[in-house]
């Protein structure tokens, strides 16, 4: 039995899985929400996805003694749950207007740019967004992305092609030829610029 972190400080004796959970909650939850936010596009849904994924993972998995493996499970579950669209779709839609105020001046340049990126991601379909996040944020290969999403590599390439065309049109500064090997994604002249 191990005692770990804050919970140990309160006198709880921890099993190994609880130690891994404690590490994840304290050290990695923010990053997981960031990841889920890229997929979902709004905070309540992102936090809901992470919350559910953590509970599912730690409820189901028998052996959880490696924090990195546990995080990989959670990330996989987040993506699956996001694509399953349970509960989150309506929430995301309902909250969308709260997240992006197109006409509101950004608090600072970074926040404004991030809002623009979030808005542009929101124009993509769920699968397109998932492909973009797994491929370009998680740095998975085309094959790994396909395996993770349970679709073919051809579908991944198609989703990425369409997604990148949208992003290129919506985001200033996102231009030039795609340098990823998967992108049979030949994108035509970027039009760039914000509307």
């Amino acid at each position: 039995m191990a005692r770990t972190g804050e919970a140990a400080g309160r006198g709880l004796t921890m099993n190994r899985w609880q130690g891994v959970l404690d590490t994840m909650i304290r050290e990695r939850r923010g990053a997981l929400v960031g990841y889920a936010y890229l997929l979902a596009g709004d905070r309540p849904t992102a936090e809901d996805l992470v919350h559910d994924a953590i509970i599912r993972t730690f409820t189901r998995a028998r052996r959880l003694d490696d924090p990195r493996a546990a995080e990989a499970y959670v990330r996989r579950t987040i993506a699956t749950q996001f694509l399953n669209g349970r509960r989150s779709r309506a929430v995301a839609r309902a909250k969308q207007h709260l997240l992006v105020e197109r006409d509101a001046p950004p608090a600072d340049q970074t926040a404004g740019e991030n809002a623009e990126v979030t808005r542009a991601l929101g124009l993509l379909t769920r699968r397109q967004r998932a492909c973009v996040v797994l491929r370009h944020f998680e740095d998975l290969s085309t094959e790994e992305t396909a395996e993770r999403l349970g679709i073919s590599t051809g579908s991944v390439k198609r989703y990425l092609h369409d997604a990148l065309a949208v992003l290129r049109e919506e985001l200033r500064g996102l231009d030039g030829a795609d340098d990823r090997e998967d992108a049979g994604v030949r994108v035509v002249a970027p039009r760039g610029g914000r509307r």
């Binding site: 890229l38 970074t110 944020f137 985001l171």
Partner: peptide, 13 residues
């Protein structure tokens, strides 16, 4: 573009 997109996504996350 990959690097640009990665940077943008990373900044949001």
């Amino acid at each position: 573009m990959s690097t640009q997109l990665k940077d943008m996504l990373t900044s949001v996350a």
